[in-house]
Protein backbone atom coordinates (compact mmCIF):
# COMPACT_ATOMS: atom_id res chain seq x y z
CA UNK A 1 0.00 0.00 0.00
CA UNK A 2 1.48 3.29 -1.13
CA UNK A 3 0.20 6.69 -0.09
CA UNK A 4 1.67 9.77 -1.75
CA UNK A 5 0.64 13.25 -0.69
CA UNK A 6 1.54 16.50 -2.40
CA UNK A 7 4.95 15.33 -3.65
CA UNK A 8 7.26 18.00 -5.07
CA UNK A 9 10.71 17.88 -6.62
CA UNK A 10 12.61 20.50 -8.60
CA UNK A 11 15.91 20.34 -10.46
CA UNK A 12 17.09 23.91 -10.56
CA UNK A 13 14.27 25.89 -12.15
CA UNK A 14 12.57 22.82 -13.56
CA UNK A 15 9.64 21.60 -11.47
CA UNK A 16 9.77 17.92 -12.37
CA UNK A 17 7.11 16.91 -9.86
CA UNK A 18 4.77 19.61 -8.71
CA UNK A 19 2.30 18.38 -6.11
CA UNK A 20 1.47 14.77 -6.97
CA UNK A 21 -0.89 12.76 -4.72
CA UNK A 22 -2.23 9.24 -5.25
CA UNK A 23 -2.80 5.89 -3.59
CA UNK A 24 -1.80 2.40 -4.73
CA UNK A 25 -3.61 -0.39 -2.90
CA UNK A 26 -2.61 -3.97 -2.31
CA UNK A 27 -4.08 -6.41 -4.81
CA UNK A 28 -4.42 -3.66 -7.40
CA UNK A 29 -2.38 -2.51 -10.37
CA UNK A 30 -1.93 1.24 -10.44
CA UNK A 31 -0.76 2.84 -13.66
CA UNK A 32 1.07 6.13 -13.80
CA UNK A 33 0.20 7.30 -17.29
CA UNK A 34 1.71 10.38 -18.88
CA UNK A 35 3.73 11.71 -21.78
CA UNK A 36 7.49 11.56 -21.73
CA UNK A 37 8.95 14.05 -19.27
CA UNK A 38 5.75 14.28 -17.22
CA UNK A 39 7.55 13.34 -13.99
CA UNK A 40 6.77 9.61 -13.77
CA UNK A 41 10.35 8.41 -13.40
CA UNK A 42 11.16 11.15 -10.89
CA UNK A 43 8.13 10.12 -8.83
CA UNK A 44 9.21 6.49 -8.86
CA UNK A 45 12.77 7.43 -7.90
CA UNK A 46 11.42 9.23 -4.85
CA UNK A 47 9.33 6.17 -4.01
CA UNK A 48 12.34 3.89 -4.01
CA UNK A 49 14.28 6.46 -1.99
CA UNK A 50 16.99 7.23 -4.53
CA UNK A 51 15.86 10.86 -4.69
CA UNK A 52 14.79 12.82 -1.62
CA UNK A 53 11.55 14.79 -2.20
CA UNK A 54 11.65 18.56 -1.71
CA UNK A 55 8.20 18.49 -0.16
CA UNK A 56 5.33 16.12 0.48
CA UNK A 57 4.84 12.77 2.12
CA UNK A 58 5.37 9.18 1.03
CA UNK A 59 4.24 6.14 3.02
CA UNK A 60 4.86 2.62 1.79
CA UNK A 61 3.17 0.17 4.16
CA UNK A 62 3.49 2.93 6.74
CA UNK A 63 7.23 3.49 6.15
CA UNK A 64 8.80 6.80 5.13
CA UNK A 65 11.59 6.54 2.47
CA UNK A 66 13.32 9.57 3.93
CA UNK A 67 13.71 7.94 7.33
CA UNK A 68 13.46 4.18 6.79
CA UNK A 69 15.31 3.91 3.48
CA UNK A 70 16.87 0.50 4.25
CA UNK A 71 13.60 -0.96 5.55
CA UNK A 72 11.68 0.28 2.51
CA UNK A 73 14.24 -1.12 0.10
CA UNK A 74 13.67 -4.52 1.68
CA UNK A 75 9.94 -4.42 0.99
CA UNK A 76 10.25 -3.01 -2.53
CA UNK A 77 10.85 -4.77 -5.81
CA UNK A 78 11.93 -2.32 -8.47
CA UNK A 79 12.31 -2.77 -12.21
CA UNK A 80 13.80 0.59 -13.20
CA UNK A 81 13.76 2.07 -16.65
CA UNK A 82 17.41 1.14 -16.97
CA UNK A 83 17.57 -2.65 -16.77
CA UNK A 84 21.36 -2.61 -16.29
CA UNK A 85 22.29 -6.29 -16.30
CA UNK A 86 25.92 -7.34 -15.94
CA UNK A 87 26.86 -8.75 -19.31
CA UNK A 88 29.78 -10.81 -18.02
CA UNK A 89 27.57 -12.61 -15.49
CA UNK A 90 24.98 -15.25 -16.31
CA UNK A 91 21.30 -14.55 -15.75
CA UNK A 92 21.44 -16.75 -12.66
CA UNK A 93 24.47 -14.87 -11.28
CA UNK A 94 22.76 -11.53 -11.92
CA UNK A 95 19.72 -12.61 -9.95
CA UNK A 96 21.64 -14.25 -7.14
CA UNK A 97 23.84 -11.13 -6.72
CA UNK A 98 20.71 -9.18 -5.78
CA UNK A 99 19.55 -12.02 -3.56
CA UNK A 100 22.83 -11.85 -1.67
CA UNK A 101 22.61 -8.07 -1.40
CA UNK A 102 19.22 -8.61 0.22
CA UNK A 103 20.93 -10.85 2.74
CA UNK A 104 19.29 -14.09 1.56
CA UNK A 105 21.14 -17.34 2.13
CA UNK A 106 22.32 -19.59 -0.70
CA UNK A 107 19.58 -22.18 -0.36
CA UNK A 108 16.80 -19.60 -0.38
CA UNK A 109 18.29 -17.94 -3.48
CA UNK A 110 18.62 -21.24 -5.34
CA UNK A 111 15.03 -22.21 -4.56
CA UNK A 112 13.70 -18.81 -5.48
CA UNK A 113 15.55 -18.75 -8.82
CA UNK A 114 14.20 -22.24 -9.49
CA UNK A 115 10.62 -21.01 -9.02
CA UNK A 116 11.06 -17.84 -11.04
CA UNK A 117 12.79 -19.68 -13.88
CA UNK A 118 9.57 -21.65 -14.22
CA UNK A 119 7.10 -18.76 -13.88
CA UNK A 120 9.05 -16.46 -16.18
CA UNK A 121 10.02 -19.25 -18.59
CA UNK A 122 13.78 -18.59 -18.40
CA UNK A 123 15.10 -22.17 -18.48
CA UNK A 124 16.66 -21.71 -21.93
CA UNK A 125 18.96 -18.89 -20.92
CA UNK A 126 19.22 -18.88 -17.13
CA UNK A 127 22.85 -20.10 -17.20
CA UNK A 128 23.97 -18.02 -20.16
CA UNK A 129 25.85 -14.75 -19.88
CA UNK A 130 23.46 -11.87 -20.47
CA UNK A 131 25.62 -10.41 -23.23
CA UNK A 132 23.51 -10.45 -26.39
CA UNK A 133 20.20 -11.15 -24.64
CA UNK A 134 17.05 -9.97 -26.41
CA UNK A 135 15.00 -7.20 -24.81
CA UNK A 136 12.43 -9.76 -23.71
CA UNK A 137 15.07 -11.90 -21.99
CA UNK A 138 16.54 -8.82 -20.35
CA UNK A 139 13.23 -7.71 -18.91
CA UNK A 140 12.60 -11.19 -17.55
CA UNK A 141 15.98 -11.24 -15.81
CA UNK A 142 15.44 -7.71 -14.51
CA UNK A 143 12.06 -8.72 -13.10
CA UNK A 144 13.41 -11.90 -11.53
CA UNK A 145 16.23 -9.86 -10.02
CA UNK A 146 13.79 -7.33 -8.58
CA UNK A 147 11.49 -10.04 -7.23
CA UNK A 148 14.13 -12.35 -5.77
CA UNK A 149 13.36 -11.32 -2.18
CA UNK A 150 9.56 -11.59 -2.65
CA UNK A 151 8.71 -7.93 -2.07
CA UNK A 152 5.18 -6.86 -1.19
CA UNK A 153 5.28 -3.71 -3.31
CA UNK A 154 6.43 -3.77 -6.94
CA UNK A 155 7.45 -0.67 -8.92
CA UNK A 156 8.00 -0.94 -12.67
CA UNK A 157 9.20 1.88 -14.89
CA UNK A 158 8.08 1.40 -18.51
CA UNK A 159 8.23 -2.39 -18.18
CA UNK A 160 7.16 -3.18 -21.74
CA UNK A 161 9.62 -0.80 -23.40
CA UNK A 162 11.12 -2.46 -26.44
CA UNK A 163 9.27 -5.77 -26.05
CA UNK A 164 7.67 -7.69 -28.90
CA UNK A 165 4.06 -8.86 -28.81
CA UNK A 166 4.74 -12.26 -27.28
CA UNK A 167 6.99 -10.89 -24.57
CA UNK A 168 4.45 -8.19 -23.76
CA UNK A 169 1.73 -10.81 -23.36
CA UNK A 170 3.91 -12.86 -21.04
CA UNK A 171 4.76 -9.76 -19.03
CA UNK A 172 1.11 -8.76 -18.62
CA UNK A 173 0.26 -12.27 -17.55
CA UNK A 174 2.99 -12.12 -14.91
CA UNK A 175 1.88 -8.71 -13.62
CA UNK A 176 -1.74 -9.92 -13.28
CA UNK A 177 -0.46 -12.88 -11.28
CA UNK A 178 1.30 -10.51 -8.88
CA UNK A 179 -1.99 -8.73 -8.38
CA UNK A 180 -3.79 -12.04 -7.71
CA UNK A 181 -1.18 -12.81 -5.05
CA UNK A 182 -2.09 -9.57 -3.30
CA UNK A 183 0.93 -7.46 -4.22
CA UNK A 184 0.64 -3.75 -4.72
CA UNK A 185 1.89 -3.05 -8.26
CA UNK A 186 2.71 0.42 -9.61
CA UNK A 187 3.80 0.76 -13.19
CA UNK A 188 4.62 3.85 -15.16
CA UNK A 189 3.99 3.94 -18.86
CA UNK A 190 3.18 6.22 -21.76
CA UNK A 191 1.41 3.45 -23.65
CA UNK A 192 -2.36 3.69 -23.58
CA UNK A 193 -3.09 0.04 -24.43
CA UNK A 194 -0.97 -1.13 -21.54
CA UNK A 195 -2.99 0.87 -19.05
CA UNK A 196 -6.27 -0.20 -20.58
CA UNK A 197 -5.28 -3.85 -20.53
CA UNK A 198 -3.76 -4.00 -17.05
CA UNK A 199 -4.56 -1.27 -14.62
CA UNK A 200 -7.27 -1.14 -12.00
CA UNK A 201 -6.58 2.46 -11.27
CA UNK A 202 -5.06 5.08 -13.55
CA UNK A 203 -3.22 8.19 -12.43
CA UNK A 204 -2.73 10.53 -15.37
CA UNK A 205 0.33 12.73 -14.87
CA UNK A 206 1.16 15.75 -17.00
CA UNK A 207 3.71 18.49 -16.37
CA UNK A 208 4.45 17.21 -12.89
CA UNK A 209 0.84 17.27 -11.73
CA UNK A 210 -2.00 14.75 -11.49
CA UNK A 211 -4.39 15.57 -14.30
CA UNK A 212 -6.92 12.89 -13.40
CA UNK A 213 -7.20 9.83 -11.19
CA UNK A 214 -9.62 6.90 -11.15
CA UNK A 215 -10.64 3.65 -12.83
CA UNK A 216 -10.82 3.48 -16.61
CA UNK A 217 -14.62 3.74 -16.47
CA UNK A 218 -14.49 6.79 -14.22
CA UNK A 219 -12.04 8.53 -16.51
CA UNK A 220 -14.24 7.88 -19.55
CA UNK A 221 -17.27 9.16 -17.71
CA UNK A 222 -15.52 12.27 -16.43
CA UNK A 223 -14.18 13.24 -19.85
CA UNK A 224 -17.32 12.27 -21.74
CA UNK A 225 -15.25 10.37 -24.32
CA UNK A 226 -15.72 6.92 -25.83
CA UNK A 227 -12.12 5.79 -25.88
CA UNK A 228 -9.42 5.98 -23.26
CA UNK A 229 -7.13 7.61 -25.77
CA UNK A 230 -9.49 10.50 -26.38
CA UNK A 231 -10.04 10.78 -22.64
CA UNK A 232 -6.31 10.94 -22.08
CA UNK A 233 -5.81 13.71 -24.66
CA UNK A 234 -8.72 15.65 -23.26
CA UNK A 235 -7.60 15.28 -19.66
CA UNK A 236 -3.99 16.32 -20.18
CA UNK A 237 -5.10 19.02 -22.59
CA UNK A 238 -2.73 18.23 -25.47
CA UNK A 239 -1.48 15.47 -27.74
CA UNK A 240 2.08 16.13 -26.79
CA UNK A 241 4.12 13.05 -26.07
CA UNK A 242 1.51 10.57 -27.21
CA UNK A 243 3.39 9.60 -30.33
CA UNK A 244 6.66 9.08 -28.56
Amino acid sequence: MIVVKNLRKSFGDVKAVNGISFEARDGEITGLLGPNGAGKTTTLRMLYSLLPPDEGEIRIDGLDPARDAMEIKRTLGVVPDSRGLYSRLTARENISYYGELHGMDKKAITDRIETMTRTLDMADFIDRRTEGFSQGQRVKVAIARAMVHQPQTVLMDEPSNGLDVMSTRALRHYIRNLKEEGHSVVLSTHIMQEVAALCDRIVIIAKGEVAADGTAAELLQRSGCDSLEDAFVKLIGSEEGLLA
Binding site: E71, K73, R74, V78, P80, S82, G84, L101, R145
Partner: peptide, 17 residues
Protein backbone atom coordinates in the same frame (compact mmCIF):
# COMPACT_ATOMS: atom_id res chain seq x y z
CA UNK B 1 31.29 1.88 -16.39
CA UNK B 2 28.47 0.83 -14.08
CA UNK B 3 26.80 4.20 -14.66
CA UNK B 4 27.23 3.91 -18.41
CA UNK B 5 25.69 0.44 -18.51
CA UNK B 6 22.84 1.78 -16.38
CA UNK B 7 23.30 -0.82 -13.69
CA UNK B 8 24.15 1.67 -10.95
CA UNK B 9 20.59 2.78 -10.31
CA UNK B 10 19.17 -0.73 -9.78
CA UNK B 11 22.21 -1.63 -7.68
CA UNK B 12 21.64 1.25 -5.29
CA UNK B 13 18.00 0.23 -4.76
CA UNK B 14 19.26 -2.77 -2.79
CA UNK B 15 19.18 -2.50 1.00
CA UNK B 16 22.95 -2.07 1.35
CA UNK B 17 24.52 1.17 2.60
Amino acid sequence: GEKERKSLEPLLINPVP
